[in-house]
Nucleic acid binder design. Sequence first.
DNA 1: CCTCCTATCTTGACAGTGTAAGGATAAGGG
DNA 2: CCCTTATCCTTACACTGTCAAGATAGGAGG
Lengths: 208, 208
Amino acid sequence: MSNDPPRLRTPSPLPVPARPYHHGDLRAALLVAAEQELAERGMEGFSLRSVAKRAGVSHAAPAHHFGDVQGLLTALAAEGFREFLAAQAAREAVAEADPASQIVAAGLGYVDFAIARPALFRLLWQSERPDFSDADLGQAARAAYQHLVDQVMATGGRSTADEAAAWAISHGLADLLAAGRLKSMGSLPVAARDAMISGIIRRILPDA
Amino acid sequence: MSNDPPRLRTPSPLPVPARPYHHGDLRAALLVAAEQELAERGMEGFSLRSVAKRAGVSHAAPAHHFGDVQGLLTALAAEGFREFLAAQAAREAVAEADPASQIVAAGLGYVDFAIARPALFRLLWQSERPDFSDADLGQAARAAYQHLVDQVMATGGRSTADEAAAWAISHGLADLLAAGRLKSMGSLPVAARDAMISGIIRRILPDA
DNA sequence: CCTCCTATCTTGACAGTGTAAGGATAAGGG
DNA sequence: CCCTTATCCTTACACTGTCAAGATAGGAGG
């Protein structure tokens, strides 16, 4: 039982241990594992020990890189906000250059992100677990907000209402779609859904 | 140590035990305690044992009434949806009778509820813990949705887009305000805030 | 009044969780 | 070559949800 059956010698000169003591890039691996965990078990079933197991390390290994579970989720949220902005930028890059089209594109990106990664979306907007007073997370979140404000300004919006309206319509659509509500709209082909979202967002823009 | 120091006899003929073995209306008390727990510690810090302690019973007492923690949260969500609808009805009762005013009133009630009871609002819309296949909860949730559809119909809306737009704008405003985002708007006096919300919702209604 | 049945609540146990403390292991610089 | 540092593991503890078994009341029927 203690010796393996004889096998052809593997090319590797040393019997490389299954898991080297040092992971190499555990921090990044834990962030990936954490988002998987979040996607599969949801925010409420999230377990730090399970994340560690996913990454192939002991349950206490994350502590050194993130402190506690809040630290891990804070780092994940910061990264999430950056990718959230990237999703908007991707839509803006292929849209018309006029301010209205740009803000519609941002809204489409907003929704794209929520549908593609609903668990991460919820971590950003509906969770109380990340530490939003953290410097890195705060900066990432502020950048996302500032992007919205800039766009509303560019469309000619001046009031608090214009800003709130643009934000709320994108956010409401994204949240409802991410949660699987709005079934009649969520089951549409992507092109039709995009067109519908664009039309709705345009209703809300400040009158030209 | 085993006998108390002599005290004046209390007026009560029998030394009434601090906690009678049977609570009397534990089910209702647990629902109240659960919402308090939710409001104070958030969905992520929610603890069934803590709820039981709040109600003054042992940690396993809730099991008989709700089965497990999911059962408790399911019942709380069902009750929440009914009060959510009641918040909308309260606004509708004091609004003009025309369909547009009614749908605006419903939106104001939507936001009222989210601001007054943000933890409960999140349980309804962003949690995965309640069992939405439960009969009672499903009926309550469907009633809330049906109310919206009826209102959109009454305003002349026919398309999926009209329905989605009306829902999303109320939901987006409510969610952002409940989460404490939209600070510039959340810090407004109530009357001004209501006026702003009304104006935003009216932008989205199907053109008359 | 007495008995029994049922609903209600408690106690005790177990596996799983997050976190802290201390030890093991590698990597690199002196 | 040694020693420092970063990284990861093991162990332990308090807390959580759930289950099983027992204790307690209330009420229905004799």
